[in-house]
Simulated scan of single mutants.
Amino acid sequence: MKELRRIELKRLIRCLAIVLMLTLPLAAGSELAAGGAEFMPLRSTVENYWDVTGSPKLDASVVGTNEFNRGDKAILRVALSNIGTITAFEPDEKPEDEKEKKLADFEFTLEKAKTVAFPITGELHSLSEYITVQSGRQVMEALPSGQRSKDPMEFAIEVDNDAPEGQYPLALVVFYAYQENAGVGASDVDSLLGLQGFRQNAAFGVKIESINLTVAVKSKADFQAVDVDSHLNAGQEGGVIKVTYRNTGKESAKDALARISLFMPFSSADDQASLGTLEPGDEKTATFKLDVDEEAIAGNYSINTEVKYTDLKGNSIISETISFPVNVGPAKRSYLGMALLAVIL
């Protein structure tokens, strides 16, 4: 399943590259560099005085917690950082006069924008069947090199109710444009007014990156009702049921309190019982007393129960609801009533 998801993700990245190159709007006086990192020649009306090596590179981190419980629906907040750098400035064409020197200086400034990513689109993908991403694409404005996004991207996720504890991989696919190269030109230079007929041109590239993230499903105490001892009859008052609970999780449950939820034909003023502390694998039995309606139909019933406990961090936790079976027999005959009927007859 995980390998299949990775193959689907690779296909998605290829498709996004094609879509981005076809749909990205061009800035005024610019050309789009197909293929991203490959150099595209500038227009013949400008000169290129510098060859610059470098580009944006994005990293991502989760803001706040990435730990969740089974069944959680939550917002995962992801901040982006641009860690791209310029590694080299190399002369491409030597300026020969005052005009070209000024143009070279101006282009040098323009080339520093090479590491800016803009605009950034992010898609979060789960590589596990236990984590579902419910949000679509998120868009962020330009992010210069050395900066971290002020507002994180927000993705709605859902953790499966049956997710085992552990780490689950996510892939954040980001795609964006960046300046691949810059060129400048001018018709003349004036000692007072500077460059005359100035023009500039830029070629742009596109990049797609896949950044690994993880979310964790917390370990917690889990419970099962492993044994039930009950003898109930219709019309019975104060009937006793004994339920044995086992901590099937990997965490201690302190000050555990078992509670039952009753519906017709059951009722009780004694619907909770203390279990104390249960270490993983421990079992303890709780006793409850309940009344059975006199009109109850004999047969099998199900009673819901949950355990409230304190975890290792001191948090009060309520377990997932589980159920256990009980059988209700027919109403017992009243021997006193039968004796009175015999006397009358």
Rank of each mutant, 00 (worst) to 15 (best):
D105K: 15
I83Q: 08
E107C: 02
G36M: 02
R70T: 10
K73F: 09
R11A: 14
L42W: 03
L12P: 00
T115K: 05
Y130E: 11
T87Y: 04
G64N: 06
P41M: 06
M21D: 14
A74L: 04
E90R: 15
I86F: 05
A117M: 07
A104Y: 07
I120H: 01
E129A: 12
R14Q: 13
V52L: 01
A117R: 06
N82E: 05
Q134A: 13
I131A: 00
P41W: 01
S61I: 10
L26M: 09
V63Y: 09
S135T: 11
I13F: 02
E38A: 15
A74I: 06
E100V: 01
E107K: 07
F39G: 11
F106H: 14
M140C: 07
S81G: 04
T45F: 15
L32R: 11
G71K: 05
T23D: 09
N69C: 08
F68R: 05
Y49M: 01
I131V: 13
K73V: 15
P56H: 02
G54S: 02
A27P: 05
T23M: 11
Q134R: 14
T109M: 13
G71A: 06
R14L: 12
P95G: 06
Q138H: 03
A113M: 12
L22S: 13
V116M: 11
I75F: 08
F39K: 15
I13K: 12
R77S: 13
I83W: 00
D105R: 13
M40I: 10
G36L: 02
E31R: 11
T45C: 08
F118I: 05
L127H: 00
L22G: 15
N82D: 03
E47G: 10
D92C: 11
C15P: 12
P41I: 00
L127A: 06
G36H: 00
T65A: 10
K112D: 11
C15Y: 14
P25M: 00
T53N: 12
K112P: 08
E141Y: 09
F106R: 14
D92M: 11
K57F: 15
L24W: 09
V46Q: 00
L22F: 08
E100M: 01
G64M: 06
D92F: 14
N69H: 12
T53G: 03
